[in-house]
Design a protein around this nucleic acid. Sequence first.
DNA 1: TCTTACTGTGTCTAGCGTACACAGTGTCCG
DNA 2: CGGACACTGTGTACGCTAGACACAGTAAGA
Lengths: 247, 247
Amino acid sequence: MSSTTGTDDPASAQGSGGPLLWRTPDEPTRGPRRGLTLDEIARAAVEVADRDGLAGLSMQRVAAEVGLTKMALYRYVANKDELEAIMIDAAVEEPPGPEALVGTWREQAEEFARLVSDVWTRHPWLPWVTVGERVMGPREVGWVEAAVRVVEPLGLAPDERMDAVSMLFGHLRTTLATASAGTRPWTADPAGGSTMRDLVAAHADRYPALTAVMTDPGRPVGSRWDFGLRCLLDGFAAAARRRAESR
Amino acid sequence: MSSTTGTDDPASAQGSGGPLLWRTPDEPTRGPRRGLTLDEIARAAVEVADRDGLAGLSMQRVAAEVGLTKMALYRYVANKDELEAIMIDAAVEEPPGPEALVGTWREQAEEFARLVSDVWTRHPWLPWVTVGERVMGPREVGWVEAAVRVVEPLGLAPDERMDAVSMLFGHLRTTLATASAGTRPWTADPAGGSTMRDLVAAHADRYPALTAVMTDPGRPVGSRWDFGLRCLLDGFAAAARRRAESR
DNA sequence: TCTTACTGTGTCTAGCGTACACAGTGTCCG
DNA sequence: CGGACACTGTGTACGCTAGACACAGTAAGA
């Protein structure tokens, strides 16, 4: 049952994404050296995704990028999910440390949102892939840790703290995912670009409230981003006030 | 250029998801009658997705469900995206009319969230598929219309109204998408179930803030749902106050 | 009756993830 | 020093996907 089994599986007997993310496997003594490191593969995969999007990411393409056969990749990762796991943790880079976030909790939150936005804009596929049941890597957990630190001064209950962090990430994800789809954020959330505007205009009688909204000239995108984040942080502040009063 | 071309394509010369959602194509006079209606196909597709999830949804499976060959489906829809479009609009059902939402804007918002939650829980794949650049169907637009109506009394600017609606949908999506993945919402957002708890516990020194959060017993799920929505609506209220004061 | 438009079927391609057998390579042990 | 053996990378194969295309059959208009 110990590691003397000498199996082929790079993620031997552990769930996908498990050990590779959190533990450097002990190097084998026998056999040819590996031509690549996991980091190189992760970086290549990130590059492919940056260039061709998530849909263009295939074992084939990544293998070609690093000069390997498709099947040779399976010597490094157990399956595509695990590849995605390591490339996510490679793409998110190092989370901000305590020294990078200063000032009031609100200033820290705004700065944190800006930092996440930076990374997720550099890798537009990130907001799409960081949903659902996954095993997070150490760096990604580090980002969550940083977010929890930011909301700590609010004095919320532990689970409320986590909920607030979830909401913050969710908001950023929604905003950036739709923004990266080439659409204006607000038309995109459950809509689809100018087509939505046209459709609403063509059925103005059915959608009076939307028609009123659509005929508005619209403000610069910057103020939209501010509005959403401000709403959210105001909500957190209200929750904190509520909790402080009830105590 | 008129419709006398007599093409094979069901969505002739128009982008995917276009005409089928918003316009009933004129029935042909010649040739055999169709064995099915679009609605029947949409319902079958919804059933497949409900049963096997989005990953299990393929042209093959849907075709088999309605007793057709895979390729015969392409007589009804132009491609898989269009199939998804019509099945989304079939699954969301009729949006709530003005009579269904009464009381203060806050009560209406809470009721609206409950209604969306109902539908998205019945069809757990819906929160996942209603993102990104798409053409929305009439019913889906109806839900957005209803949401805009709800936030109208707040007196926000038109684009702020739309932003608020986007945030509301985004929040519900995040919450329900992660909830339907079988995970507790707060562990799932950027995490993955109990593994996250284990990982954090194993690296408590690296993640002190998270460790503090994780060791909390946790409240019932219901109060979590309340917390998030309350935060959001408090944020909207604050925005409305801000706007009222500045005017 | 003949033409024509339409429905549904069968065949085919390109691509996907991945299971498996195998050739080559390098190290440790007898 | 000579296997034995563990390891890396390759090639082949399978089942699946979306979709292009050619064809048979059917029904209505000219």
